[in-house]
Design a protein around this nucleic acid. Sequence first.
DNA 1: GACGTTCCATACCGATCGGTATAGAACGGC
DNA 2: GCCGTTCTATACCGATCGGTATGGAACGTC
Lengths: 195, 195
Amino acid sequence: MGRPREFDADDALQTALELFWRKGYEGTSITDLTDGMGITKPSLYGTFGNKEVLFRMALQRYEQNYMAFFWSALEQPKARTVAFDILRGFVNAQTEECNPGGCLVVNAARACSDAALEIHKTIVERIEVGQKALARRFERAKREGDLPADSDPEDLARFILTVAQGTAVQASSGASREEVYRLVDIAMKSFPGAS
Amino acid sequence: MGRPREFDADDALQTALELFWRKGYEGTSITDLTDGMGITKPSLYGTFGNKEVLFRMALQRYEQNYMAFFWSALEQPKARTVAFDILRGFVNAQTEECNPGGCLVVNAARACSDAALEIHKTIVERIEVGQKALARRFERAKREGDLPADSDPEDLARFILTVAQGTAVQASSGASREEVYRLVDIAMKSFPGAS
DNA sequence: GACGTTCCATACCGATCGGTATAGAACGGC
DNA sequence: GCCGTTCTATACCGATCGGTATGGAACGTC
């Protein structure tokens, strides 16, 4: 009962996600959000709570809708394919025409001012979650003989994500998909099992 | 003649550099700057003009004092040494105890809000200057037979700087110097001439 | 010691920040 | 038709943003 809302909350969240992606957490103002969503401030606060929870909801949606490739890549049978699929998946998301450039997480990782410290902590934590999951996957590969006995799974995981973060900077600076694809090919030469 | 200023402008600029390094352009407020410098706003504006020119002065000082290794690395005789010295130099600057974490340029590269567009353009431009200089160095190496005939100097330059940008994200997220050193070693396996 | 000059301290500017109080408009249930 | 509820619109909140006007204090010069 009561008056029905005149906008689609899901559409609005998608708009917020894209704005945060493009401009970062602190770079996106409430006015940016309400203008983009086409709603008023009370509607935004009534629906989403406040800016911080809205960002966290957008972050969750981002991981679900744009970072899903990461977790399915982990299920590839060979570590080398895991690594390649992850890098390619990142680059695809970062250079998709209809997406903002770069990576929402990396773009927001410099939520710099003291006021955004909590957001920064969350971002760093999300990166670590992915890095640890990848390291565990590489440990399994090492046990299976899929990775050499002298390789360090944690270092390899850090390397892959570091390249992904680097490509995010490149992509948000305007590098083309093909350029970054070639970059991934070069990076993969460092990975055990290169032809 | 006139009353002498009661603070050292060079010290103040160094403080500004460190604040911008740690918190980015928009994340650093005028109050942050004046508090850190121990001066008042009129002194800051009288000495440096405004926030944007202060940032550009800090950026210039940063390149001179912390990125000098880049240009001397270019003078190394072998391309592989050039690449390694550059990566090591970046990591050293990014993980120096007494420095803020990461890279001022990468941290500021997400000067996200619409207001900071000019700063963002400058930052992207500074990255490109380095990337092009490195590509030219690798072109020379290719001509000299120091790099294989089928290698692409531009792609190699982009790869090295992408890894450097990735390490900057890692470092500002708290990775240790040794961890990032190992990461550089892995990345160097992609570079032509690996043992 | 008066002077022009330069710097410092306080207090202020309009704009914007994230967030909210208030009042009215649009609905379902009775 | 009326009520309770939930939305929307306007107008506002204190705080902070980058930047400045004003007045006095500290100098070298004469």
